[in-house]
Amino acid sequence: MSATRPKHLAIWQIRMPLPAIVSILHRASGALLFAAVPFMLYALQGTLSSADRFEAFRACIAHPLVKLALLAVLWAFLHHACAGIRFLLMDIHKGVELPKARASAYAVLGVSIVLTIVTGGLTW
């Protein structure tokens, strides 16, 4: 391939199609979840600790900022899981046609946001 092939990498001008947005959010949410691993383990420890330490843990996660962080991790998990299921299905050649891929990308974005709001609303 010629080294002088035309390139158009003006990222601010490229309008990303929906499946591309789902894909990059899958990566971003994965990175966030990676950073959150020890904190998720800390939360598991909190739920498993003795009654008095459990109350202290409850007080810790009752802080609005902590709740917001938990909401972000919840969205990251839901998006990563939904998009991951979509990619697994595509790996076995399910829904690879463009209209279906677009529809499933829409579904992944929507379902993860709605589930975040519903779960967040129920547990806030």
Binding site: F34, V37, P38, L41, Y42, L44, Q45, L48
Partner: peptide
């Protein structure tokens, strides 16, 4: 650094799960 982060998480997870 990534490996250190993950190995530290693994050690911590053993404490959390089996503690």
């Amino acid at each position: 650094l990534t490996i250190l982060w993950l190995v530290a998480s693994l050690v911590y997870s053993v404490k959390v799960v089996w503690g």
